[in-house]
Amino acid sequence: MQRMRPIFLILAIWGAIHPMWYFLRWFGENGFDLAAMVEAWHANAASSGLVWDLTIAAVALTVWVLDDTLRTRYWPGLLAIPATFCIGVSCGLPLYLFLRLRPKGGAAPVA
């Protein structure tokens, strides 16, 4: 699994930059109005479904990160939670996998 670590880092970076580009573009066109952005996310049933899909995935990831962090006592893994809710699941999930697969010697215990 160590060979996957750089891939997860690349995906975390991509997952931070690519969605943020769209958010910043939207804010540039509409001003920094979070309420309007949330309203835009629910413009139709398809986008509402996607919002709920990502929200549920974010909550599931958070529960997993909390459980795994409490079990392994590897506290840097908690960085995935703000990454998930401030950027998105596209950053938070690969970031957590990158952090979780740290090199041997600092490896998290496997339960």
Rank of each mutant, 00 (worst) to 15 (best):
W14G: 11
S47D: 01
W52G: 03
Y22G: 05
I56C: 01
R102S: 04
M37T: 09
C86V: 14
S90G: 08
P6G: 03
L70Y: 09
F23M: 14
L61W: 07
A83E: 13
V110D: 11
K104R: 07
A45P: 10
P19N: 01
I56L: 12
A108D: 05
M1R: 14
W26M: 12
W21Q: 02
F85S: 02
L9E: 01
R102W: 06
C91I: 04
I13S: 04
V51R: 09
Y22H: 04
I81Y: 02
W14A: 15
I7A: 00
V110N: 06
L101R: 08
F27W: 00
V38T: 08
R100C: 00
V59D: 12
I87S: 14
Y96P: 12
P76Y: 14
D68A: 01
A58S: 13
P94V: 08
A57T: 11
M1D: 15
L24Q: 10
S48M: 14
A36D: 01
G105H: 13
D67P: 00
P19A: 08
P76V: 09
M37E: 02
W26Y: 08
A45Q: 13
P76E: 08
L11E: 12
N44I: 07
A36N: 00
G49H: 13
H18Q: 08
R73W: 04
L54N: 04
A45M: 13
L66K: 01
A60I: 11
G88V: 10
R102Y: 03
W41G: 12
R102E: 10
S90Y: 07
W26D: 06
V51F: 15
V110L: 06
P76M: 08
L11Q: 10
F32R: 15
A107T: 08
S90R: 11
V89N: 09
V65G: 06
G28N: 09
F32K: 10
N30Q: 05
L11S: 15
L95F: 03
W52C: 01
W64I: 10
L11D: 09
G49I: 13
V38Y: 12
C91K: 02
M4I: 14
A57G: 11
V89A: 00
F98N: 03
N30W: 06
L79W: 10
C86P: 09
W41N: 11
R100Q: 01
W14H: 12
P94G: 13
W52R: 00
L99N: 08
F23K: 11
T72W: 00
L101H: 07
F27E: 00
H42Q: 01
A83P: 13
A36Y: 03
V63G: 04
F85R: 02
L66Q: 00
M20Y: 02
L97G: 15
F32S: 14
A45F: 13
N30T: 06
F98Y: 08
V63W: 01
I13C: 06
M20K: 07
L24S: 03
K104M: 15
A35L: 12
Y96L: 12
N44T: 03
R5D: 06
Q2S: 14
L97A: 15
